[in-house]
Amino acid sequence: MTPFAALFKRELLRQVRQPTRIVAAVATPAMIWIFLAAGFAGSTELGVDADMRAFLIPGIASMTVLFASIFASISLIQDRADGFLRAALVSPAPRSSIAAAKIAAGVLMATAQGLIVLLALPATGHAVTLTGMLAAIGVLACIACALIGFGLTLAWRVDSTQGYHGVMNAILMPMWLLSGAVFPVETAAGWLAAIARVNPLTWCHDAMRHAFSMAPSSDPVAAWAVTILFAAAGLAAGVRTLGRSAHPARKPRRTASRDPLPSTQTPDPT
């Protein structure tokens, strides 16, 4: 077994042995979808070829992927705290394989969780083709790849899971809200639409809505290009960060160890 395959298997085993993580990643977006769809039912003129319940599905699926991606990248901080990361870094395995395995396993799990949400789309009465569904799955995989890759880059520099959660929430929630996840960018105020257009997640949502024939105004080729570039940039950032030769110089934190030999500090002669 190659180092990548062994690390990939480990990541999958860790995910399936913590089922509460999967439930948490899916349950929150599902609830948000139910409440938003019910709350806006019949009161919103979207200006796109879908009702509110169907329109929200791509955004809710990306939110599921977003949560799963945070869990996947935060595992780097846990690995460091548990000591596993040091053991992997001093092994002969290529260091880039650690990042590649985390991203690959994270993409698989996050996409599977996002797919659970996508499968609700036919239940809304919106027509879905197999090609469209496969394309949307591809978009979800790209989003996961980008978010996990950039997440690993941040996690490499952050020591606490709490700090990482705080930073990720501060970045990703506004990014998600300004991506056309809950409103069509086409009908938004001009300043808001301008911000949304520089947000790569907006283009990912457009690519998904093109796949589901929800007819956003953007060019599908451009939407797919930005989506793929976003994923490639995240992948490169994650692999490059962990592939560096050594961790940034940092005084190692001591574990609670006994020190049975007496202190040899000089007593104050005064």
Partner: peptide, 20 residues
């Protein structure tokens, strides 16, 4: 530095793979 969610056997197989 063993992974608490894996068995000893799984940890050792992983360690062998990391050593190629």
């Amino acid at each position: 530095a063993v992974d608490d969610l894996l068995t000893i056997r799984e940890n050792l197989i992983l360690a062998a793979a990391l050593c190629r």
